[in-house]
């Protein structure tokens, strides 16, 4: 246990002293700030547009009952931040996972470790504890910044339920980022040349973080015509559902493609928690959990699968000690 702690501490120190990591983290924090600012501005623009329309209708003597005043939900400001975490947060986690193994390979330090009285499994566990602690710190830093911006800059009082929802989103982010960390560590462990592992991880990242969610959207029949396909042929939503029942195979395929993307699961869960998806706004934690249990299971499933696989790979891998030059 003592040794695991020593390794974890060293891993943590190693990353914190890496200025690329620190710069990347700063970049992510700046993006969070920008996104929240843009989100707030966007709301102001909506409100002023509402005011203008409202005044114009009043002046013209028109009824104003059809207009709904935009309502402000502070947690919805996190939407862009979540999207940045999906994309850039994943890159950060990949870099950590990659560097954690690649550095040892490049510096030829593994023979120093593996000839000491510590098992490979224990050594990897130490690395895991250190890096996961680092990801926890990153999430804590980001989400505390978010709470700080909302409370002190925005002057908005957050209820305990809202804070709990933010903290749960932070936890979901931790799991999401850890999955990418573990995947990168797994690839770097298994492949002889770390740079090839990095590229493979990036290709996977590109595919599942950016491409697959886009494919799901593109394949939505309703998105084929501006303003909605069904709208164009005067069919309302309940009717469209009846018609689409004849195309279950296609719809299953479309959903199936989306299901493979871990990003989509993370997004669905956090968007529900933060009320970014309107139907979950103001709902209790129990309700959201029950409705999104599938997403939670997917995230945890990926986390434990990659965790176990990388631990197993590190204990057994023969290429770890092969020279990379």
């Amino acid at each position: 246990m003592d040794k695991i702690f020593t390794i974890a501490k060293k891993e943590y120190k190693d990353a914190v002293r890496n200025y690329v990591f620190v710069t990347f983290l700063a970049f992510l924090i700046v993006l969070t700030g920008i996104s929240m600012y843009v989100g707030a501005l966007n709301f102001h623009v909506k409100v002023s547009l509402f005011e203008k329309t409202y005044q114009a209708l009043i002046a013209a003597g028109q009824p104003v009952s059809t207009l709904t005043r935009p309502e402000f939900f502070p947690l919805q400001l996190l939407r862009a931040t979540i999207e940045y975490l999906e994309i850039i947060g994943a890159i950060l986690a990949i870099s950590l996972g990659y560097l954690s193994i690649a550095k040892e390979k490049g510096n030829n330090t593994l023979p120093l470790i593996f000839t000491r009285p510590i098992t490979r499994k224990k050594y990897y566990l130490g690395k895991l504890v250190g890096n996961l602690a680092l990801i926890v710190s990153v999430c804590a830093l980001l989400f505390i910044t978010i709470i700080g911006i909302i409370t002190f800059v925005g002057g908005i009082h957050l209820s305990s339920l809202e804070i709990a929802k933010i903290l749960l989103s932070a936890f979901a982010t931790f799991i999401y980022l850890s999955i990418f960390f573990l995947f990168a560590a797994l690839c770097t462990t298994l492949m002889r040349f770390p740079s090839n592992a990095l590229i493979l991880t990036f290709v996977v990242w590109l595919f599942f973080v950016l491409i697959v969610p886009q494919i799901g959207d593109t394949m939505d029949t309703d998105n084929q015509v501006p303003g909605g396909f069904f709208n164009a042929i005067h069919i309302d939503q309940p009717q469209s559902k009846i018609i689409l029942q004849q195309f279950t195979l296609y719809e299953t395929l479309r959903n199936g493609i989306e299901e493979t993307s871990i990003t989509k699961h993370y997004e669905r869960l956090t968007f529900a928690l933060l009320g970014i998806k309107d139907i979950y706004n103001g709902k209790s934690l129990g309700y959201i959990f029950l409705d999104k249990v599938w997403e939670v299971l997917w995230l945890l499933g990926f986390f434990f699968t990659f965790g176990t696989m990388s631990l197993y790979a590190f204990s057994r891998s023969k290429v770890l000690l092969q020279k990379v030059e």
Binding site: T221, I233, I243, L244, F247
Partner: peptide, 16 residues
């Protein structure tokens, strides 16, 4: 993807 989506959307139109 575009072709399969278009073909499906076309079939959805006929079904509609």
């Amino acid at each position: 993807i575009s072709w399969s989506t278009f073909t499906t959307a076309d079939a959805v139109y006929r079904a509609s």
